[in-house]
Amino acid sequence: MDFRFTDDQLLLATSVREYLAGTHGTQVLRRLDEQGNRDPAIWQGLVDMGLTGVLVPEALGGLGMGLVEAALIAVECGRACLAEPLVDTAFVAAPWLVREGRTDAIAGIVDGSRKIVPAHAINPWLADGEGARLQSVDPLRNLTTAPHDASEDPYLLDLGALMSAAQLVGIADAMLEQATDYAKLRSQFGQPIGAFQAIKHQLASCMVAIEFARPVVWRAAAALQAGGAHAATHVSHAKLAATDAAMLTAETAIQVHGAMGYTYEVDLHFWMKRAWALSGAWGSRAFHVRRLDEAVIGGTIPIGPEHTFA
């Protein structure tokens, strides 16, 4: 087992991070919130980077990469609080449609003319779907009621849960960075509040949670890519670990910001609300805990020394 990434994989993640940091900063989030939350120019920029084709086989005009690379990019989308449905379209819909042999929409996904968010029965809402818009707590998320003929395919669910987990890791990273920056700037009692252990220890606990969620997400991506027997268990583990890390970090980041963290004018709430939305999407905490307990206690995961950490 080797958790290291190749230079190409790391370069890909870094380039997406830098691109989004340069073109999708908080002033863009504010503009999207105030003036309508989808922007064709942002979408086209992502398409031009080739991100819509990451998981599409080369024979179909894509880059032919795997879920590990896609998960690394999804982390960056979370970090940037990206509103455009890149993850849903390129990292959930595209691999699912390819697997289903429904390749007629793939060219449109790659060239950016199609945004597809697949409906799964586990989600009552469909992001960026047709129909009357529902007001989500996340002002950058466009929801409609899910259609009745939603898929029940477990592979689709696992893709959605994995990519939500990856985004949640990036969201948690971003919130921890904002809270840490604030703790260095904000002074009370004659020193930066980050000098107080009461603040320091809380932020350190978030870092622990995030760092232990990150490799679980990588492991799940590799497992789902390989299609192993226990891939679903790894995905559930990833969704739970990332949800817990993101919710802890959201709670802590607001607390560290004090009353400022409770205002709409501080940017933090965009990430906090995305964390909330994605925590519930593609299977609640209870759903994923149940999948794990059924696997562990129900015997799907073989236990005993010869099966260590299967």
């Binding site: 809402w125 007001q135 989500s136 002002p139 909330w276 519930g280 609640s284």
Partner: peptide, 18 residues
């Protein structure tokens, strides 16, 4: 929120009111 599940994500009307 955990009890409401995803239903809790949606406002009651079109406005940002909860």
């Amino acid at each position: 929120m955990d009890v409401l599940g995803q239903a809790g994500e949606i406002a009651e009307g079109e406005a940002y009111e909860w």
